[in-house]
């Protein structure tokens, strides 16, 4: 939902970043306002996931120039955990398995840590159990997943549901969902997408990183950005996603080259 007067949640200006000395992000500009849904699409290796991880503070990505403001404050001055507490959430493309750490214990620790940092009430194990089971219904998740180790032995779809469950618990202002649709069959996709939709409010925003248009049938974006070579080379409305689906990315690249004379 576009509202030109809504608060700017995220302001990215000229972001450049490297991984192991190789520049992957080559100047990204993006503005996300409250209430908006953005989709970032693009071919493999275009820098989409790097962008998502850099925003969340992954230590392997070094920001070399540019700035990112979260509600006007310098995001890069914050550690990954401070970003999470401030309202940034990254839904991982490959959620990490942590054998030996119970999912319920982990979810409660994360929830209480973030609640505490935001000056809100924490929940004891019994209260949390009721609370989390309610949230799991939203995602049609079996409560049995509480007793297992974090993501350990979960199928691809189960891992993605567990990611969105964490999003539901942590109530981010800005959720960046990195290929949340990959590994999901059509039924799971619908459940996960509906879950995300129900979490979106006029006060928060979502950035969907995806290869495919099909997720966007369920979570309808206000903006679609095409990323290539570490830059956003085109921005359009939801219809751009459909056009990409039928025509591929090459024409966008040609258009960009023609416009800028740049080699991408």
């Amino acid at each position: 939902m576009i509202n030109a007067n809504a608060t700017v949640l995220l302001e990215v200006r000229g972001l450049r970043a490297t991984v192991a000395g190789v520049e992957i992000l080559k100047g990204i500009d993006l503005t996300v306002r409250a209430g908006e849904a953005h989709a970032i699409m693009g071919p493999n290796g275009s820098g989409k996931s790097t962008f998502a991880k850099a925003l969340a503070g992954h230590p392997a990505y070094e920001v070399t120039s540019g700035e990112v403001l979260l509600e006007g404050k310098d995001l890069f001055a914050l550690s990954p955990e401070e970003r999470a507490r401030a309202g940034v959430f990254l839904g991982f493309q490959y959620p990490v398995e942590i054998p030996g750490v119970s999912n319920s214990g982990f979810l409660r620790l994360a929830y209480n840590t973030v609640q505490g940092a935001r000056g809100r009430d924490e929940l004891d194990p019994l209260e949390f159990d009721d609370f989390v089971r309610e949230k799991m219904k939203l995602l049609d998740m079996d409560p049995g997943f509480l007793d297992r180790s974090v993501n350990d032995g979960f199928s691809g779809g189960e891992k993605k549901r567990n990611e969105i469950l964490q999003m539901a618990l942590l109530e981010p202002k800005l959720a960046i969902l990195d290929e949340t649709d990959s590994g999901l069959d059509i039924d799971a996709l619908r459940v996960v997408a509906n879950g995300v939709n129900r979490l979106l409010t006029p006060a928060n925003a979502v950035v969907l990183v995806t290869h495919y248009q099909r997720l966007l049938n369920y979570i309808v974006p206000d903006y679609v950005h095409v990323m290539e070579g570490g830059r956003i080379i085109k921005t359009g409305g939801k219809e751009l996603a459909l056009e990409l689906e039928t025509r591929g990315y090459d024409w966008v690249l040609e258009e960009y080259k023609g416009k800028t004379g740049a080699e991408v």
């Binding site: 990954p80 955990e81 999470a84 991982f92 959620p95 990490v96 942590i98 994360a110 840590t113 973030v114």
Partner: peptide, 18 residues
């Protein structure tokens, strides 16, 4: 494991607690 640490920190846990 660095990826496990980052995952936990991205959910708000401090480095020490992770």
């Amino acid at each position: 494991d660095a990826e496990q640490l980052f995952y936990l920190r991205s959910r708000g846990l401090s480095d020490a607690s992770a």
